[in-house]
Design a protein around this nucleic acid. Structure first.
Lengths: 144, 144
DNA sequence: CCTATAATGAGAATCATTATCAAAACGTTA
DNA sequence: TAACGTTTTGATAATGATTCTCATTATAGG
């Protein structure tokens, strides 16, 4: 298992969350995915091996432990992905047709520019920023 | 009424949508707001003058006409705001506690940088970008 | 191997949103 | 202005994603 895997297990044991079979399967699918997945998408991907109610509970447990992060999309659908501190900072390409989300990582130079930009934007405001995400909307290869 | 108001009415009549009292009230509240509002927030703001069912229908009619745009937030809640072509391009400060969203406009220099950055990012990919939005997450003044 | 605690899964409950449909408002034309 | 066809409205029912409940099962530690 990858480096993040060790950190992930550490975090779970720290927070007293057992890394059970079902949870492992959910995490495994999320690790393989190239973008956040909804409960329905996970259920499909897992071929029903994890029942829907457990799936939702697992996702909220993992979110609370900070190993997974939500992304809110069209139709009131929430998609989850491995948290940034485990999977690395990235941004999203969001399809305005099917709602699918793909991760993109910015070249370091651009990411630095973006961070500087976010800093400038929030310096004056009464809003205390803790993170940022660039969302690019458009049509995915599938929806052309 | 402001310049966008004329464009807005034009667009509605072009698409054969009547600008009725209820719709005017919804648009008026959205115009005044400094960020996107959910159906519940609008209903509160309108002191119940527009019933919930009409509110939702109005929002989807306005969205279809392109005068209003959705923003998807925590808890599966959709907030709407006047479309960018009417209200101007901007970005969002999203409170990770209460979910409130505040608009921010980037200084032209930064916006240009961001646009160039988005261009660079998508040039190679099979994704055809049509828009972008920088979301800054953190805590609003209220939730401190 | 026991026992306390955590996790599971089926189903009911919830909440935002959508659909339905009869009644009311509107614009148009005679 | 009256009458007609169309659009809009609003109360209510239906939907769909998500959360809750609770009895059952699995697990870690002594």
């Amino acid at each position: 298992m990858s480096i993040q895997g060790r950190q992930l297990e550490e975090r779970l044991s720290e927070t007293g969350v057992r890394f059970t079979g079902g949870r492992r399967q959910v995490v495994a699918v999320l690790e393989r995915s190239d973008g956040p997945l909804s409960a329905a998408e996970l259920h499909r991907e897992l071929a029903g091996k994890v029942p829907v109610s457990s799936l939702y509970r697992t996702l909220s447990v993992l979110e609370e432990a900070g190993v997974v992060e939500p992304h809110h999309g069209a139709g009131g659908i929430t998609r989850y992905e491995i948290a940034e501190w485990l999977a690395g900072h990235h941004h999203h390409l969001v399809c305005i047709d099917c709602g699918a989300v793909e991760d993109i990582e910015l070249p370091p130079r651009l990411e630095l520019e973006l961070e500087r930009l976010v800093g400038e934007v929030t310096r004056l405001s009464s809003f205390s920023a803790s993170g940022h995400s660039l969302e690019v909307d458009g049509r995915c290869a599938r929806c052309g």
